[in-house]
Amino acid sequence: MTIDPALFSAALRALTPILFAALAGALCQRAGIFNISLEGTMLVGCFAGVAGSWFTGNPWLGVALAVAASAAFSLVLAVGSVSLGGDAIVISVAMNLLAVGLTAFLLRTVFGAQGSFSDPELRGLDRVRLPLVEEIPLLGPVLSGHSPLVYVSWLAVAVTAVLLYRCRWGLRLRGLGENPAAAASLGVRVTRQRYLVVVAGGGLCGLGGAQLALGNVTLFAENMTAGRGWIAVVAVMLGAAAPVGVFLAALLFGLAEALGFRLQGLGLPQQATDAAPYVVTLIALFVSSRRLRRRDPVEGAVDR
């Protein structure tokens, strides 16, 4: 087996859905919301993307529908947890199941299909060739020739970083996650900010879903996110909810997945490579556990 540009190119493709979801998770984390509904929200995006592209014939309208549907879906978390004070974890777990049921239900009622839907007529996102970048030796083939959403995801990392660390909006968000009562007392509209973040996160998950269903492949299959949303949750932890950190964590999983496929070609059973990203994730968590180790249960008492 060789380490070649194609491997990294595959890694970048694989990481994109995770990256979108992880950015969403990072924003929510900064606002003090532990969002584990990324998996289901992304799945809704997958379905809406395929449905949008199928019925309009335009994959970009599919992307738009994916963003709208996922953002709408994430309103469940916003209303349930932010406004009404429900347990975000319970709501998120139920949302993930709701997404599985809902997309399977719609798959049957809308497409009359069971298990999965694909059709030669279904249009995915075209690959983009970057004129000059393409020419760069080694790097060119890695960076060029992806679906446009891959580049959008990089842009999203940069925009999120600027928003968080340079803008008033980000400063207020970072503060509000640390001490919501203080933020409110200083005139920040906590509920509104959190709504915005959860719904914007939903939109990002929609982009991730669209990339998965219209970029990486061109089909919808039940439960096709297959744990990517959970890996995104872990990426948020590993990357300390910082955009660039989250990107690096997602890259790790992208590489694991791409390597897995490669190894499969060399005769390793598919099941071993299926498991690879999760094992890599766990190991990465162990390695960084010192940082993640939860605080002494009493330390909080001492602090306050």
Binding site: R166, R168, L171, R174, G175, E178, N179, A182, A183, L186
Partner: peptide, 28 residues
């Protein structure tokens, strides 16, 4: 009595929080 501060932000960020001096486009 229990301070309303943001421990992860700097002193300056804490002081201006909610009344930030701005460049254009909402940049602090």
């Amino acid at each position: 009595q229990h301070f309303m501060l943001f421990p992860g932000l700097t002193v300056a960020e804490n002081v201006v929080y909610g009344a930030e001096p701005l460049h254009r486009f909402g940049v602090v």
